[in-house]
Amino acid sequence: MSERSVSVGDETSDETTTAFDLRRIGLYATMLGLVVFYLLPIESGLVTSIKTSEALINTQPFAPPGPAGVTLEKWQFAFDTLWSGMINSMLFTIPATLLCAVLGSMAAYGLTLVDWRGQVAVFALFIAGIFIPYQAVIVPLTQFWSQYAMLEMRLGLLLSARSATLLELIITHTAYGIPICTLLFRSQYKTMSWEMIEAARLDGATVWRIYKRIVLPLSIPMFAVVFIFQFTQIWNEFLFSLTIIGSVSDPAASATLILSGLGEALEGVDYPLRMAGAFITALPTLVVYLLFADEFAEGVEV
């Protein structure tokens, strides 16, 4: 043992410092190499989106075009095509995100901070809901909206066809977002002091008042996490858009739906246009992600 501690002391000599530095350099080199790996497809898409057709042929796919080869024409065109989709996506993503967060928080409160038998069983049903493949519900779901609920027809006086479809998307996304939001909130509520809730009960607060005055103010950070995470999830979703909206030309078509058909033509694929479209579609999620990376990561962790 004493021998070993001597050799540990020796390691502070210059020789090991150099070895240590080399190791550090290797570490950073690896990490930078990985940065290239993760960013290259995105960077290549970005430079491609501003290339003229000539520059596209004459330059490397990852190299930026020269000043003469730059055009914003594709961005302009993609923007015009996607604009209505962006609006539609916003119109259903934001309400659905808010509803998911509120309902998830309430469910988590009812299943965590009010003590009753059997809550674990109910909670398990919520959790299983996170993992259900959408394929298993998608046929009945479209059946339900198109042949049973028929919001368009029933609410025809109040809602346009487009609004009816958006409403369907809001309800659908809310329903399928509740499980993950419940899980996120419950993970926080489980760490809340049980004695604090009891103190509030003894202070005379009802279940509703405890939620409003104690639990809700304390869950503001988790609301941020849920907003960030759920916003990107709903914005990025595609299968519901494809099956509920149905057609790229529908007035309610979402951004991802329009993007999936963008730049497809008989004479071949217009890559710069697709890249520009991809960036425009990704823009809201990119902004949210880059501003709130920590909250997003926290949402992923649970």
């Binding site: 002091s193 004695e195 604090m196 009891e198 103190a199 003894l202 005379g204 103010p217 304390l218």
Partner: peptide, 19 residues
């Protein structure tokens, strides 16, 4: 119910409302 018993309690963890 607890809230109608006219009782106050001090907890081991103090259970203060942090916000």
């Amino acid at each position: 119910p607890a809230k109608d018993r006219d009782i106050a309690m001090v907890f081991q963890s103090y259970a203060l409302y942090p916000h």
